[in-house]
Structure formats: structure tokens, C-alpha cells
Design a protein around this nucleic acid. Sequence first.
RNA 1: UAGAGCCUCAA
Length: 235
Amino acid sequence: SVTYNIILNGFCLMGLMVEAWKVVQRMLLQGLSPDYITYTTLISGHCHRGDIDEGLRMKEEMLSRGFQLNVITFTVLLSNLCKRGRVDEAMQLLDEMESLCLDPDLQVYSVLIHGYCKQGKIDRAIHLCKRMRSKKIMPNSFVHGAILLGLCKKGMILEARRYLDTLTESSVPMDIHVYNIMIDGYVKMGDVDEAIGLYKQMDTAGVAPTIVTYNSLLHGLCKSRKLTEAKELLR
RNA sequence: UAGAGCCUCAA
């Protein structure tokens, strides 16, 4: 089963659901039954292709076949609902999950917080974050990044900076994504200088820039006609 | 063996 599941995942990642089904057929011919990982992989594949409802249907099928659902299966559905802006449905699914006595973990909260932030509902995101902490799950850079992105996208760059500084003061380790989000936030507000400031701060923090960092910075520098600085950055 | 985050561009 393990081998089949691995191959299945390959097709699912490529969105080749017809091929994926052939793998399942072959499993059955070999007398192997699909397990909960087979199901989750298929659900993920359908969601990946944009067919979340088929994913939800397969989750029901798992239930009716007596499979014990787990947190990962729910996370796949939750994250894809959130990606499509269906956060309310995701929250309902969270209730269902808890009614099955499954404890949401960091990744579950992370996708939901991200979903709210993408909708600009920062207050709800922060509320969820508090709820998470009350269950002794501490936010990591995925969660902080989501909140910062939400603030930046609303143009609340000062709030974002305050949030970031609080994290720094509490010596929470920041990763490259968090820096990229802030740098891009400044660039979008037309404040390249602050963006460059953070870029330098990254260096002292020992965080290496990526192509995303440079895309944002170059975009900002070119937009504000600082071509010399842009060239300088490229060397 | 299955689950989460950043920019640009394309549609």
C-alpha cells in the first residue's frame, strides 16, 4: 500500500486524477484496500484541481466506510476551503472536527488564520490566535506571517511594524517569509527606504534573502526611479 | 507514504 500511495500522490500533485484512479484500480486488483492515506491523498488531489466539493464528498465516504478521520485529512480540506475564500465553511468543518474529538493542531489554526487574514478579517484572525494560545499552542512564523500579510494588504503597515517589533522584542525567531512579507508591504506603500532597512536588518539577523526578496526590492526601487540603487543591489 | 505561509509574471 505504501508504494501505491506514493505513486498516487505523484499523480495527485500533478492533478492527473484519471491516472490516479488507475493506480487505485491496480491496488484493488492486487487485493490491497485503500487506506486513510490513500483517501487523504485523493482528497488532496481533487482539491488541488479545484474540486473541493468532490473532496468533501470523499470525506463523507470515508466516514460512511468507517474510517477514522484524522487531523491531516481535515487540514487538507480546511486549507483548500480557505484558499478559495470559503472560510465560513471551513469554520463549520472545524466544529465538525472537534465534535469528532479531533484536537486542532498548529497547522489547522494556521490555515484558518490565514484564511481570515486573506479576507481582511484581521480581528477574527487574532481572535483565533488567542483561542489557539489558550490551548497551549504557540503561534509560529507561519501564523505571524499570515497576520502580518493581512495587515500589510490592508495598508496597515504601521500596525504590522509594531507587531513585528513586538515579536523581535520577545525574541521570537523570524524567518525569511516574514521579512519578505514586511519588505513587500513597505514597497507597496511606496516606502522603499524602510524596505531596504529591513533588508539590512535581515543580514544582521543572519537570514538569507531569496529571489522573492529581490523581486520586491527591485520592484520598489524601479518604481521610485532609484535605478542606481537597483543596479547596486544586483551586484 | 497524506496537511499550512511571501514577490513578480502569465492566463
